[in-house]
Amino acid sequence: MVISQTNKKLSLCFDPVFGKNDPVLTDSVYFMDDKSPIKFETLKFYISGVQLFMNTELVWREKESFHLCGTDSDNKKIHLSIPASLEFTRLTFNLGIDSLTNVSGALGGDLDPTKGMYWTWQSGYINFKLEGKSEKCKDPKKEFQFHLGGYSGPNKSLQTISLNSVYKKEIEIKVDLKQFVNSIDLSKQHHIMSLGQAAVILSQAAAKCFSTQ
């Protein structure tokens, strides 16, 4: 009971949207800037290392902070418990899994390899996964698959995202997929399944899609 008096709840709600407010549903058709239709089938990404700042000062961080998020309704929200008196102006988190965790062997919970976010032919977590269909893709099934990962050296794809927000019971964080797919020429690039420069560039583009506005 002591905990409920000294702690308050904080939820981070990740809402995949297309454009400003259109929520992303896996059975809906959306239109890109050039009017071409696009469908999304899978969106999964890791959020890790959640930290809260008062201006520039770190005031709170989550221990063992690894969360698999995405379009499934049960993994849209991260539930945190912070000191009741804590105020903050900014939150930061990583999009992806840090390099130490990547070399730490078999892990459980959201990091269990059965979650479909671990590469098999080359060790490492997939930080961000987006799959769907677009007529523009030069693929027999018109599919695109972006599995972005890579944890070391020039291939490191982990991105740190910093967003302004004061305390609210639930902070809504939009993930704008329109911005992401508009940054890619799907007629030239529809398939990334390994680490490298292309994965790093797309990871940077993915990080820019997160906003509290």
Partner: peptide, 8 residues
Amino acid sequence: GAINNLDM
């Protein structure tokens, strides 16, 4: 050397 830990 594709695999970084015996577990995996």
